[in-house]
Design a protein around this nucleic acid. Structure first.
Length: 490
RNA sequence: GUCCCCGUCGUCCAGAGGCCUAGGACGUGGCCCUUUCAAGGCUAAAACACGGGUUCGAAUCCCGUCGGGGACGCCA
């Protein structure tokens, strides 16, 4: 089994396309097949190397490594269409020689006008066949005279073209509704329908799994396979990914590209797992499974027929799950850029600071949706608790008690020392419960809300020890308590 | 307009003629846990688009209607 993902490098990888790539990958991995990555850059105007690189990066970020294709090579390359022009030219010549293709001299303007007229007359827009019967000799003469021409496929009239879609079953088209498609543009660059057929044939692709928007291209391609005498691969068309309003997911719905979700702080394994759940189910009422297990269970036949709405809430749920499973050192690494944008990290990180992050972050990640929210939780560490909540009941007493208790240089490096400190503050002030912990929070973190106190307090004291570590400077608990006590006295 | 595809809780899926009093998950509500916000646990409400058939029996098969989407490019 050989499958391929064939993006055109005209922008970032859309999550819908990412899902198509994923389904190809799952099938290949699950069945011991080969996953090929081919770049369809025949739209020279819009294709860029930057986009291509971005797509490659996103695919790799998701863990969808390809076995054959650009950058990794393989026996059936090249894997970029603009590098395969020779093969297309040979096939075009063959079609012309056999009379299965013909030159068309209609100008883009003429065609456009015809199309508009047909639409206005409630007719299906379809190429009129104007140049169908120009003789080979005439065509050659006109071309020799400098006239520009495209090559079109001569579509047989009144025929049924049918194929069995692996996800949908039998699909039938009548050639009456298909106009002769352009195979080669006037500049000699092949058009999509032509290039894919040759590529898939030469790359020995056995299963073409792509978006539903290609379903009506399939009969044209089958006609081409027939014209060349090639055996068509199996086709499978995946329904599209929609926005909440059931329109195709687009920028007005918010984030649409893999890159954006990555930047928003979603883990690749969460995105991959969630994407697999749109239009497919691993079964057994299980949803959160590693990619390898998804691949093991994946069957094209079980893919849903209808379009799915992208639900970011559910993505966030998956992300929470994987955040909890995330290795501490990796979590620290992933969080770093987000903490930098919040100025919580301001320089090159020392090894100690990395360790600190790896100790502190996992506890906070347990209650967070996405990476940047880790910075929210950490805010309590870096915030200087001044000028806040002067009127909080119990605040002066607690501040004084804390200052007293911490005077001996007591370090609050773990939950237990913090709790015993809280106990002594309770004895000194007679406060308890909310009335006790609330003021403690305000004195030490400068805010009435935040993550678990016994998580954050040790984090503060540990961070206070890390000068010149790359972390933004942090005042110790003792310094905070004394400053607060001083201020509240005056 | 024509052709193609699709139609189970708000959303994503399970369901391949009796196992359905339609199951799970996200989200929502409630309760519990808790020093706050979360997270977590438990729990509740919530759907077979509609109309005809076929059949002893239909969410499951057929037809129609309606609704949604796609395609109709010298874009892919």
């Amino acid at each position: 089994m050989r499958v391929r993902f064939a993006p055109s490098p005209t922008g970032h990888l859309h999550v819908g396309n990412a899902r198509t790539a994923l389904f190809n990958w799952l099938l290949a991995r699950g069945q011991g097949g080969t996953f090929i990555l081919r770049i369809e850059d025949t739209d020279v105007e819009r294709s860029t190397r930057e986009s291509e690189q971005a797509i490659l990066d996103d695919l790799r970020w998701m863990g969808l490594q390809w076995d054959e294709g650009v950058e990794v090579g393989g026996d059936f390359g090249p894997y970029r269409q603009t590098e395969r022009l020779q093969a297309y030219a040979e096939h075009a010549e063959r079609l012309i020689a056999e009379g299965k293709g013909y030159f068309c001299f209609c100008s883009a303007e003429t065609l456009d006008a015809q199309r508009k007229a047909q639409l206005a007359a409630s007719q299906p827009p379809k190429y009129a066949g104007t140049c169908r019967n120009i003789s080979t000799a005439d065509a050659a003469a006109r071309r020799a005279g400098g006239e520009r021409a495209v090559i079109r496929l001569r579509v047989p009239e009144g025929r049924e073209v049918a194929f069995t879609d692996v996800v949908r079953g039998l699909v039938t088209f009548n050639t009456e509704v298909i106009g002769d498609p352009v195979l080669v543009r006037s500049d000699g660059i092949p058009a999509y329908n032509f290039a894919v057929v040759i590529d898939d044939e030469q790359m020995k692709v056995t299963h073409v799994i792509r978006g539903e928007d290609h379903i009506s291209n399939t009969p044209r391609q089958i006609l081409l396979y027939e014209a060349f005498g090639y055996t068509p691969p199996a086709f499978a068309h995946l329904s599209l990914v929609m926005g909440p309003d059931h329109a195709p997911l687009s920028k007005r719905h918010g984030a649409t590209s893999v890159r954006e979700f990555r930047e928003k702080g979603y883990l690749p394994e969460a995105l991959v797992n969630y994407l697999a759940l749109i239009g497919w189910s691993p079964g057994q009422n299980e949803e959160l499974l590693p990619a390898s297990e998804l691949a093991r269970r994946f069957r094209l036949e079980n893919v849903a027929h209808s379009a799915g709405v992208f639900d970011e809430d559910k993505l966030a749920w998956a992300n929470r799950h994987y955040l909890k499973l995330c290795d501490p050192a990796r979590l620290a690494e992933l969080a770093e850029p987000h903490l930098r944008t919040r100025k919580q990290i301001v320089g090159p990180l020392s090894a100690e600071a990395r360790t600190w992050l790896a100790i502190v972050l996992p506890g906070m990640a347990a209650s967070v949706d996405r990476l940047p929210q880790l910075a929210d939780r950490l805010e309590a560490v870096f915030r200087t608790p001044e000028g806040t909540l002067e009127n909080e009941p119990g605040l002066p007493e607690v501040a004084a008690a804390l200052a007293q208790e911490l005077q001996g240089g007591l370090r609050l490096l773990d939950k237990d020392t913090f709790r015993s400190l809280a106990g002594r503050v309770k004895d000194r002030t007679g406060l308890k419960g909310k009335g006790l912990f609330h003021p403690i929070r305000v004195v030490l973190t400068g805010a009435a809300e935040g993550p678990e106190l016994d998580l954050i307090v040790p984090a503060i004291d540990r961070a206070a020890d890390l000068r010149e570590s790359g972390l933004a400077p942090v005042a110790s608990c003792q310094e905070r308590a004394e400053a607060a006590a001083h201020r509240l006295r005056t």
